[in-house]
Nucleic acid binder design. Sequence first.
DNA 1: AGAATTGATGTAATATTATTACATATCATT
DNA 2: AATGATATGTAATAATATTACATCAATTCT
Lengths: 192, 192
Amino acid sequence: MNMQTRTPPSSPADNGYGFSDRIQRQLEHAAHLCAGQGGRMTPQRRDVLGLILTATTPVGAYDLLEQLKTSGRKPAPPTVYRALDFLLEHGLIHRIERLSAFVPCTHLQQDHPHDHSHGPAENCLHSAQFLICRSCGGVTEIADAPRVLDVLKSICGKKNFTMQSASVEVEGVCEDCAPASRGQKGPAPAPN
Amino acid sequence: MNMQTRTPPSSPADNGYGFSDRIQRQLEHAAHLCAGQGGRMTPQRRDVLGLILTATTPVGAYDLLEQLKTSGRKPAPPTVYRALDFLLEHGLIHRIERLSAFVPCTHLQQDHPHDHSHGPAENCLHSAQFLICRSCGGVTEIADAPRVLDVLKSICGKKNFTMQSASVEVEGVCEDCAPASRGQKGPAPAPN
DNA sequence: AGAATTGATGTAATATTATTACATATCATT
DNA sequence: AATGATATGTAATAATATTACATCAATTCT
């Protein structure tokens, strides 16, 4: 009832999670982005996004819940799900359906200091493509998306189907985990 | 402990669900297919597949469970999930991740009397593409798949990612539900 | 400033989807 | 009939997600 006293999102004061400078920059960027769309980056939402940005693999809602509990607060599921909904709606994170887990949208990851150049929610339809590694659990968002999307658009066009969102999830084994086909590493023995 | 007395899958005796002739033919076809892969189409699996084939929209595991209960048996979740796993592994159904629900694979739907021509599980990697209508809940499997798949394969190739399965789920509004853009029907007023 | 409105959060309970672990039964062969 | 593999029954529980309602904070209007 005292450290809760509203600090603007950009302040370091409400960062009880030791987010790195890099992630704090990404959080500020995100705050600017959703401010531009009339959204408010509250501490809750900021914390959830920060935790997702920090993780190296997709994070589940209840993982987030656990992590949030460590910080004095004792949130319940709706707290997390509401934050996730907000972040999804503003195009700051994606949900990996196969994993029931969440990853940051790439456009937050690739360090630009802070430009307000694109509007992820309004103009572009919600769509994303992922490569999911069964061995390391890592997820890569495919930047090469337009090609996939174009094909899908053309198919939908033919069928008079109005596309509102689309997700592509490819599951397999990533380069790093591939069992030494050309003298690389080899953490995973036999995927399936 | 008595009506359970094993009847071969093709017998009408274990059909307590009034499956139509058409679906019974599809079930036989499916039985042949998975027999060819060394799988056994047991009554449980047959019933689950029949129910999925009968439905016009994706069916959830617990829906299936309810329906199975009506027939004297009182199955528990594992019964259904095991049947679903089997049907998935043999390429007879697909899981729609966004809906946590299941649909038949199209190659069962398009009435061929019974040819044993293709092997859905061994050679082809597990992949499917769907158009999901938010208005009517209908799901269409995209037959046009190769194009999408080719793009994905090429992307994976570039990244040295070994694709094992892939799913594409496009959500939107289908032709029939589109609010009369050219004097069609118009069951759904305003999707989102 | 005070009242009204909207948006965000807290909280408890519950719903939905899925799995684990272990016992039992059935099938295919020897 | 005995065996080993496959399939099913059963109870308990785990993991994910939502509902409903109370409260609190920010914004706007007068």
